[in-house]
Each structure stands twice: as structure tokens, then as C-alpha cells.
């Protein structure tokens, strides 16, 4: 068991967003979390990554047998948690290469590994760039600065490839992507799937799931997981719309 979320309650500025979530993610699995806007999907991703604006009022998250909520943000990252941001922030003047190299070597140092030399690092970068079909010279571009929407998302997947996480959370990585970019992103994810890592794919639509086949699909509504199933659930949801879920929930 890689990740276990138990009865998680989360509030922001006193307002409860997540109202009791239980979720188990094992190595080798891909979980899709779907749901209408404003139901707490991105909040869940942020809480796992450790964003400090959120307050966990109840419940716990166990990751690799450890209490995740006690770890600082960077330690979670070094333990293999990766968040692909819905809105990646721009960091002017900091080159992608410098940024990635700092991150990669900090993680390696945490794991007791030697830092990569300049040439090793460059080789690795070239290799991973191809995975997501990035052509541009990342060495001299600043982090996310002047990137188009699609480039930003590809850049997130590129970073995921570089850092080789154990648990990757893709927060609406498919939103705003044209079909080519979507295919490239999905392709990247599929190539990175391994028996010893896991993915949580947060999405509003089913279309990414056509390319990245999930093992489980969960529907998040009003801060709770109201329905879980296999990949067919995503199709059903696409067909019947979220109104269907709303009705089912209110019927309960």
C-alpha cells in the first residue's frame, strides 16, 4: 500500500472543502478522480503535496507507512510525491536547467546518491525532453515564463519524467490542451508507468482517460467520494453527465 487517506477533512479559511475522504492507492495503479468544478479535486491534490493554505481538520494520510501530513513540502517531494500543477507558476530569470538540476540533485542528496555531473544531467534532460516532444532549448528559458498553455503542461510532464516520482498527481493536466498536446502528454504518462509507481489523475472530462487507462475511477462531489468503480464509470459519467451523480446523491 503506497498511499492511504483516512477520513480526510480539509478547510480553507474556516470553510470545509473536503468532508471525509477515504482512498487507498497501491503501487502500479492509476486512479482517476473526476467530478464537477468546485468539489474539492484540486484541494485534495494540494493537500497531498502540502500546500500550507489548507487546514486538515480531521483524518490522516499515510504514505509509504509514514505520516505524510507531518512532512514539509520538500520532504514529500523527495519521498517521491510529484504534483503536476493545474496552473504552473512563472519564475522569472531562473532557467529550467538550473531549476531542474537543483531539484534533482537535492532529491538525490536526500536519497544518499551522488549529484549528477553537468554532462550526465544534460544527457538526462535531452532524453526526457524527447519523451514529451519538447524541442526548445530549456537551458536558457526561464521556468514557465513565456510558455504557452500547452507548453506549460508538457513542461510539467517533462519534470515528472526527470524526477521519477513514486506517486504522481496530475491536476487537470488535460485542461486547455489541443488533441496533439493531449496525446503527447498521455503518451508521456504511459511511458512512465511502472509496477512500483502510481498515478492519481484528476480530471473533469473523460477524454484523457481514453489515452491513460485508469484502474479505478472515483467521483468526487461536494467534498466526498460518492461513487467508485472501474474505467467504465468514466464512460458512464461522460454519457450521463454530472447531473446524474447529483441526482443520485440527493436521492440518498
Amino acid at each position: 500500500m503506497l498511499l492511504q487517506i483516512k477520513n480526510l477533512h480539509v478547510a480553507i479559511e474556516g470553510k470545509e472543502i473536503i468532508k471525509g475522504i477515504d482512498l487507498i492507492v497501491n503501487e502500479g495503479e492509476v486512479h482517476a478522480i473526476m467530478g464537477p468544478n468546485g468539489t474539492g479535486k484540486s484541494t485534495l491534490a494540494s493537500v497531498i503535496a502540502g500546500r500550507e493554505d489548507y487546514e486538515v481538520t480531521e483524518g490522516e494520510i499515510i504514505y509509504k507507512g509514514k505520516n505524510l501530513l507531518e512532512m514539509p513540502i520538500e520532504q514529500r517531494a523527495r519521498e517521491g510525491i510529484f504534483l503536476s500543477f493545474q496552473y504552473p507558476v512563472e519564475i522569472p530569470g531562473v532557467s529550467m536547467a538550473n531549476f531542474m538540476r537543483t531539484a534533482l540533485n537535492d532529491i538525490r542528496r536526500y536519497k544518499g546518491l551522488e549529484p549528477l555531473s553537468g554532462s550526465e544531467f544534460l544527457l538526462k534532460m535531452e532524453e526526457k525532453k524527447q519523451l514529451v516532444e519538447i524541442q526548445s532549448q530549456l537551458t536558457n528559458r526561464s521556468v514557465n515564463e513565456g510558455f504557452s498553455g500547452g507548453e506549460k503542461k508538457k513542461n510539467e510532464i517533462f519534470q515528472m519524467a526527470m524526477l521519477e516520482p513514486t506517486l504522481a498527481i496530475l491536476d487537470e493536466t488535460d485542461s486547455g490542451l489541443d488533441i496533439d498536446a493531449l496525446r503527447i502528454v498521455a503518451n508521456g504518462v504511459n511511458k512512465l508507468r511502472r509496477p512500483d509507481n502510481a498515478f492519481i489523475v484528476i480530471t473533469h472530462y473523460q477524454r484523457l482517460l481514453e489515452y491513460v487507462t485508469p484502474d479505478f475511477v472515483h467521483v468526487l462531489f461536494d467534498g466526498r467520494i460518492v461513487k467508485s468503480g472501474k474505467k467504465e464509470l468514466a464512460l458512464e459519467l461522460e454519457e450521463k453527465g454530472y447531473e446524474w451523480i447529483k441526482k443520485e446523491v440527493s436521492a440518498l
Binding site: 502540502g50 514529500r76 507558476v89 531549476f99 531539484a103 537535492d106 532529491i107 521556468v143 524526477l163
Partner: peptide, 11 residues
């Protein structure tokens, strides 16, 4: 910006 860097493992 800080959160983004820290999420990538940088202290």
C-alpha cells in the same frame, strides 16, 4: 513560487 520549488524537492 516557493511552493512550486519546494514541491520539486528544493528546500
Amino acid at each position: 513560487q516557493l511552493f512550486y520549488c519546494k514541491q520539486r524537492g528544493i528546500d
